[in-house]
Design a protein around this nucleic acid. Structure first.
Lengths: 219, 219
DNA sequence: CGTTGTGAAATGATTCACAGCT
DNA sequence: AGCTGTGAATCATTTCACAACG
């Protein structure tokens, strides 16, 4: 192992986008691509693409570009999605169901292997082939099924408590949909999706567009 | 109006967080706060908080801090959520329903005034007091109800088409849940929420935590 | 040729540190 | 004494530009 390269945070986000674009390219039988082409498809500069990829190794072929299949394999390895991540969904409301219904996660290395809810009317019902379990089964199921990722899709008031239980049971990564900052210790990773923030950002951009300026869109 | 201050993008995201934290403070009858306190609650430095706010004016009172009610009003004005944004949801699937069910948007300046879907079985049903309309009514309803924001919660294949229709009808901001980059002209703002990217980022962080290092979590 | 990988330069964002107000 | 607002310094990220390679 050479040194620690230090990866910029924005780079990580873009790796996912590269991977998705490349997968769409294989689907179209495309064998090879370039940083220019990849960048154009995603609204980035070619230099940005090359620099991002170069943090992880030398995947390109000068004069040729990148071999699509090869780069896909590399990116999966980098992102950790070459293995399978057993994942639990906590909260069988609309968000929980939306995620479980989105079939493409399976091919992306994420497998939902348990759903929990505390509502007795929901417990026992089946969502996408999975029976909703009561919260009291959480710890044992997380352990038995070697679940490493947890999705917190419960109301704000319950989010921290649920998080604590997940971590206690052995989960090492949390995707949080509740509008609060979750308190976790350093060994656990948290990533939050916050609809209010997203909408307010949008309102700001729009308001601004009517008067001043911010930098580009970039989606 | 003096000059163009140029707002850092990360600042905008944080403004939403400040606003939410302040709202929770008023709910607890708190009259006044400081950049230090605000920062600690959100995992930011006090200097960061002050700098963010100072881009928009001098809202603080030296020696005292910030008056909570006052700052809330200012932030709402800055974000554009002091007015009301009529919003349309396209796609009455789980994500669309999750958003409509999240009651707090109303108090945040976003009002969902129309839902559309192209599935005949769903059209005509009622979601949170709103009858689902067919796609063919989109243009007229957007115009009649002065809808300015659109939420794209449809499958990937339909997302660009839906976006085009929304913009054609007069929408100026789009919140996109489909996993593609939407093509829009400059006068329209787009903000995307991408579950796959969020999950893959999480997997990366976790994988890394097992070996190397990235910078802090920060949720 | 066209395209990568990469130092060096430029731009952007955060933190420091302190003068000045209450 | 306590806290803001802000220039200056630091740190992070992006862009430039070009040598090296197939």
């Amino acid at each position: 192992m050479p040194i620690k390269p230090k990866i910029p945070r924005p780079t990580v986000k873009r790796l996912s986008l590269y991977l998705r674009q490349l997968e769409s390219m294989t689907a179209h039988e495309q064998q090879t691509t370039s940083s220019k082409q990849l960048g154009e498809a995603l609204g980035l500069t070619d230099a940005q693409v090359r620099k991002d990829l170069a943090y992880f190794g030398q995947f390109g072929h000068p004069g040729i570009g990148y071999k699509v299949g090869e780069l896909i394999a590399q990116l999966r390895k980098i992102l950790g999605t070459d293995r399978n991540w057993n994942t639990a969904v906590v909260g069988a409301g609309n968000i929980g169901r939306a995620l479980m219904a989105y079939g493409r996660f399976k091919n992306k290395g994420f497998e939902f292997v348990a759903v929990f809810d505390n509502n007795p009317e929901v417990v026992g019902t089946v969502i996408e082939t999975h029976t909703v379990r009561p919260m009291k089964d959480l710890a044992t199921l997380i352990k038995d099924r070697h679940i490493k990722l947890g999705i917190v899709a419960v109301p704000e008031e319950a989010a921290q408590q649920v998080t604590d239980e997940l971590i206690e049971a052995g989960v090492v990564g949390i995707l949080n949909f509740a509008p609060i900052r979750l308190d976790v210790h350093d060994a656990v990773s948290v990533n939050s999706v916050d609809f209010s923030v997203s909408l307010e950002q949008l309102a700001f951009q729009v308001s601004l567009g009517m008067t001043g300026s911010l930098d580009e869109d970039e989606n």
